[in-house]
């Protein structure tokens, strides 16, 4: 594997999402809030689970024990890797790793739609626009003016609602401050979660909740063995859940 980036090269801010699997009830509020915030169109009538445009997908993992323990729902946005496998494969630099924030951004207007990044991503968090985005007549008025609509034929994915970070920066600089108020930058999914299963913050700040949570023994990362260095952490009080979800899918067979 490629060498994982060392802490010395890690960004000054490391925006991190921690998902508490104990709390997730699979209600779908995160994905819905995400679609509203990021102007993701309603499904085309022919769209399926495999052709839809979904940035925050909630998957149902099998029950943790044969005795029928609780089902675990796993919300999967872009994992915002520190060593992303997607950035290097894009032929025209339509994916950028922001060295200041650690956020992996997709630039839809530069995307050619070759889908190589989708092949490269082991987390399957990208969507290709198989159809033109369409809203029922009049519903365009409900679109969020801070986010542009992506056209047919390009790839898109979660960017931790980076437009909210930009707004927070604008607000801070207007107030003459150098750093943003952490309360001003919360992605839509985190804001929406009714059972508060999602924690978001800057893990570069050692005292932040996400820094503390992501380091304790209950937290793990998906496909950590691949060395991609995701900044989305999952946690569960159930060791069986932790073990099962830390594995690589191909080993099951």
């Amino acid at each position: 594997m490629h060498t994982t980036k060392h802490s010395s090269t890690l960004p000054a801010h490391r925006y991190t999402l921690v998902v508490d699997l104990d709390r997730c009830t699979g209600c779908g509020a995160c994905g819905t809030a995400c679609a509203v915030e990021n102007n993701i169109p309603p499904a085309n009538e022919k769209a399926t689970e495999r052709t839809g445009t979904v940035w925050m997908r909630v998957l149902e993992a099998p029950a943790s024990s044969a005795a029928g323990g609780p089902t675990t729902f796993v919300p999967i946005p872009c994992q915002q890797c520190d060593n992303p496998p997607c950035v290097d494969v894009c032929p025209q630099r339509a994916i950028e790793y922001d060295p200041r924030t650690g956020i992996v951004g997709q630039i839809p207007v530069r995307c050619l739609g070759c889908r190589y990044c989708m092949v490269a991503c082991p987390y399957h968090t990208r969507s290709f626009n198989w159809w033109s985005p369409e809203w029922p007549a009049g519903m365009e008025s409900t679109l969020n003016p801070d986010v542009s609509v992506r056209t047919r034929g390009v790839v898109e994915k979660c960017n931790f609602c980076v437009q909210r970070l930009q707004a927070a920066r604008a607000k801070a600089s207007a107030a003459g401050q150098k750093e943003i108020d952490p309360a001003d930058y919360v992605p839509a999914c985190v804001e929406a979660c009714p059972s508060r299963a999602l924690y978001f913050g800057d893990a570069a700040d050692e005292k932040s909740e996400v820094a503390v949570l992501s380091k304790d023994g209950e937290s793990f990362r998906l496909l950590a063995a691949l060395g991609t260095g995701p900044k989305v952490f999952y946690r569960s009080s159930d060791p069986v859940v932790r073990e099962r979800l830390s594995r690589t899918g191909v080993t099951r067979g």
Binding site: P91, R93, R110, G153
Partner: peptide, 15 residues
């Protein structure tokens, strides 16, 4: 590719 008219971007913004 989804946007063939942008194919020349590879020469313009090569990675």
């Amino acid at each position: 590719v989804g946007q063939p008219l942008r194919a020349w971007f590879t020469f313009w913004h090569p990675n």
